[in-house]
Measured scan of single mutants.
Amino acid sequence: LVRYRTISKIPQITLNFVDLKGDPFLASPTSDREIIAPKIKERTHNVTEKVTQVLSLGADVLPEYKLQAPRIHRWTILHYSPFKAVWDWLILLLVIYTAVFTPYSAAFLLKETEEGPPATECGYACQPLAVVDLIVDIMFIVDILINFRTTYVNANEEVVSHPGRIAVHYFKGWFLIDMVAAIPFDLLIFGSGSEELIGLLKTARLLRLVRVARKLDRYSEYGAAVLFLLMCTFALIAHWLACIWYAIGNMEQPHMDSRIGWLHNLGDQIGKPYNSSGLGGPSIKDKYVTALYFTFSSLTSVGFGNVSPNTNSEKIFSICVMLIGSLMYASIFGNVSAIIQRLYSGTARYHTQMLRVREFIRFHQIPNPLRQRLEEYFQHAWSYTNGIDMNAVLKGFPECLQADICLHLNRSLLQHCKPFRGATKGCLRALAMKFKTTHAPPGDTLVHAGDLLTALYFISRGSIEILRGDVVVAILGKNDIFGEPLNLYARPGKSNGDVRALTYCDLHKIHR
């Protein structure tokens, strides 16, 4: 019993810090008490220290592992850092350059016999395009090294910054494609005289377009951006097909006994025919423009016929181009109408809503002055909100995010209106959640004399007048207030005048 009563005193000691020596009952000389009392004092002292730490809000209350900052290894790049964003855009520009100039170089340097010394005699450094290609190869190699040090988000939505895990993730992902696209074939085969082989191998750079397509997928929600990307894709495919079309004609031209190829026909049409040795002929500019003209006309199913396939190889390629053109029509131009419709969806919704308003007016036989006010209010409210119901949009977000959005939407009023000066951010967040926005066209009466005042109004834009009878008592403008002081009276009061809008007004109100 003594032991039980001794232990039962522990909660009292913990909360009230009572010393055991003052209790005459606990001072009985028993061996059990002498053993338990020192333990009680020690526990009391420890609990006292913990309570003191909690009340003082000291940093040592938290466990040590929670006080440590997340460790980022040296030379690790955050995937959302500004440097990584700028670097990704730079790589994107280099990939676009590669997609345009690599097929052009591979096709127009394929057994090209233009006048001038061969590239091997001039030297590697004197070729501007080769120098640019070398810079692109170096940048792609540097990009691989950067990807080995860039964080990523795993399946659990955690940012991984450990170098080993980053390397394994990159090896399992895009490393092989990036490595093949970054191989400097110019340096590996330079001086061997195989410019045709170098041009063909350099087309491996186009593998990076797969990554670019995935990154550009984030802009699919913007109709104008999608339309622009589709047109660029169409032009890029036409450019690639033009390079292939020229390569076919250029390879067949020296081996044909009869002059029936499209390059021969082009030379005869523009007065620059090929001679018996295969030299001469149109310039590279004429060849490229004509090839691009043929691919565009074939892809769009126009086909004027002034550039036509004559050999079997050219006919087979033309059939493939027609098939590609039909697929592009289905996948690209078939979506253009939907994209344009999405661009004008706001206008369509406006006309639909206006039609419903006019049908309501016609069905209920609203008189002319009231009908005009109804239409003007709808037009003004639509121009202010673009038909978007803010309350319906915010309803799907958590309250903390709703408060931040409301604070942002009402920031101008909260910053410049005098009653809100000096208020804490928590108070402003709470008030912003209570605001209701209303609009009024010129001549609209917001409050009639004798109406119950259940709200306090803040003028965000425009001006109003307060009338008693036919006498203008006051004219209020931006950041002015009218209405009933909230919670100042037990019952809502009545208006002693009319409140009429002089201009288009936007008002925020808080109800009782």
Rank of each mutant, 00 (worst) to 15 (best):
residue 66 K to V: 09
residue 69 A to R: 14
residue 72 I to K: 15
residue 72 I to Y: 14
residue 73 H to K: 10
residue 74 R to L: 05
residue 75 W to H: 04
residue 76 T to E: 01
residue 76 T to L: 13
residue 82 P to D: 02
residue 88 D to C: 02
residue 94 L to I: 08
residue 97 Y to F: 03
residue 101 F to N: 03
residue 101 F to G: 01
residue 101 F to H: 04
residue 105 S to A: 08
residue 106 A to H: 01
residue 111 K to T: 05
residue 116 G to T: 14
residue 119 A to W: 01
residue 124 Y to S: 03
residue 131 V to W: 02
residue 134 L to A: 06
residue 134 L to K: 05
residue 136 V to G: 08
residue 141 I to P: 01
residue 144 I to M: 14
residue 146 I to P: 01
residue 157 E to T: 11
residue 159 V to E: 04
residue 164 G to H: 12
residue 168 V to F: 12
residue 168 V to H: 11
residue 170 Y to T: 01
residue 174 W to Y: 05
residue 175 F to Q: 01
residue 175 F to L: 08
residue 176 L to N: 01
residue 177 I to M: 04
residue 178 D to R: 01
residue 178 D to G: 01
residue 180 V to R: 01
residue 183 I to G: 05
residue 185 F to K: 03
residue 190 F to Y: 13
residue 190 F to E: 12
residue 195 E to T: 15
residue 198 I to R: 10
residue 199 G to C: 12
residue 201 L to P: 03
residue 203 T to M: 12
residue 207 L to G: 15
residue 207 L to S: 13
residue 212 V to Q: 01
residue 215 K to W: 04
residue 220 S to L: 05
residue 221 E to P: 04
residue 222 Y to E: 04
residue 224 A to K: 01
residue 226 V to M: 13
residue 237 I to T: 09
residue 237 I to F: 05
residue 240 W to N: 03
residue 240 W to F: 03
residue 242 A to Q: 01
residue 245 W to M: 01
residue 246 Y to V: 09
residue 246 Y to P: 01
residue 250 N to P: 01
residue 252 E to Y: 04
residue 253 Q to E: 11
residue 260 I to H: 15
residue 262 W to A: 01
residue 262 W to D: 04
residue 264 H to D: 02
residue 270 I to E: 01
residue 273 P to Q: 01
residue 279 L to Q: 15
residue 280 G to P: 01
residue 281 G to K: 01
residue 285 K to Y: 14
residue 289 V to G: 01
residue 292 L to E: 01
residue 292 L to N: 01
residue 293 Y to T: 01
residue 305 G to N: 01
residue 312 N to H: 01
residue 324 I to G: 08
residue 331 S to R: 03
residue 333 F to C: 04
residue 334 G to Y: 03
residue 337 S to Y: 10
residue 342 R to T: 09
residue 343 L to A: 12
residue 348 A to P: 08
residue 352 T to M: 11
residue 352 T to P: 03
residue 353 Q to R: 11
residue 361 I to N: 01
residue 362 R to Q: 05
residue 362 R to W: 01
residue 364 H to V: 02
residue 368 N to H: 14
residue 369 P to R: 03
residue 376 E to S: 12
residue 382 W to C: 01
residue 384 Y to E: 15
residue 390 M to S: 05
residue 394 L to W: 02
residue 400 C to F: 03
residue 402 Q to F: 01
residue 412 S to D: 12
residue 421 R to K: 12
residue 423 A to V: 08
residue 424 T to M: 03
residue 439 H to W: 01
residue 442 P to H: 01
residue 444 D to T: 06
residue 445 T to L: 12
residue 446 L to S: 01
